[in-house]
């Protein structure tokens, strides 16, 4: 069992700082996916990797503060629901399912509506992928911590 007392401060510091850098880079990959290789899936995987690093380096208990295990499925379902909600929203405003011409953003041309809708979709996908990868990781390792 890893506790605060027997974990090396150097390891702790290295893990924390590296994880923060990876998280910033993951957010960058998601929101810059319009202009360079990147997007929701890749950025979500990077965010999940940062949480894995904290889980491995600091132990499960101390990294709960950054990403509690019990909210992972909740966050994942929020991501999927946001995605579905965008699709239903375009139906409600008179378009087809996920037809971004109908996104109700006044004052924007059609291609800019696509632009912002894609950004929302990418954020939702990134959130879902990050939360569910962390959730799978936690469930796979949970046995070692309870025995």
């Amino acid at each position: 069992m890893i506790t605060h007392s027997n974990i090396s401060p150097i390891l702790r510091f290295a893990c924390r700082s590296a994880a923060r850098i990876i998280q910033v880079f993951g957010v960058y990959v998601i929101v810059h996916g319009h202009y360079s290789p990147g997007g929701g899936f890749q950025g979500g995987a990077l965010l999940a990797a940062a949480v894995f690093l904290l889980r491995i380096g600091e132990g499960r208990e101390h990294s709960q503060r950054d990403m509690p295990s019990r909210v992972t499925l909740l966050l994942g379902s929020i991501g999927v629901l946001v995605y579905g909600a965008v699709g239903l929203l375009t139906i409600a405003t008179g378009g087809r399912f996920l037809d971004y011409d109908a996104v109700p953003l006044p004052g924007l041309s059609l291609d800019d509506r696509h632009y912002w809708a894609i950004l929302v979709i990418e954020l939702a996908v990134g959130l879902a992928v990050m939360a569910i990868l962390v959730g799978i990781f936690d469930r796979l390792l949970q046995r070692f911590h309870h025995d």
């Binding site: 997007g39 899936f41 992928v129 569910i132 990868l133 469930r139 796979l140």
Partner: peptide, 20 residues
């Protein structure tokens, strides 16, 4: 293939859970 990679990760996670 981008979607296939993510589905692959999900299936491997599921397979490992079944193995456990």
């Amino acid at each position: 293939m981008l979607t296939a990679i993510v589905v692959g990760v999900a299936t491997v996670g599921m397979a490992l859970a079944l193995l456990i």
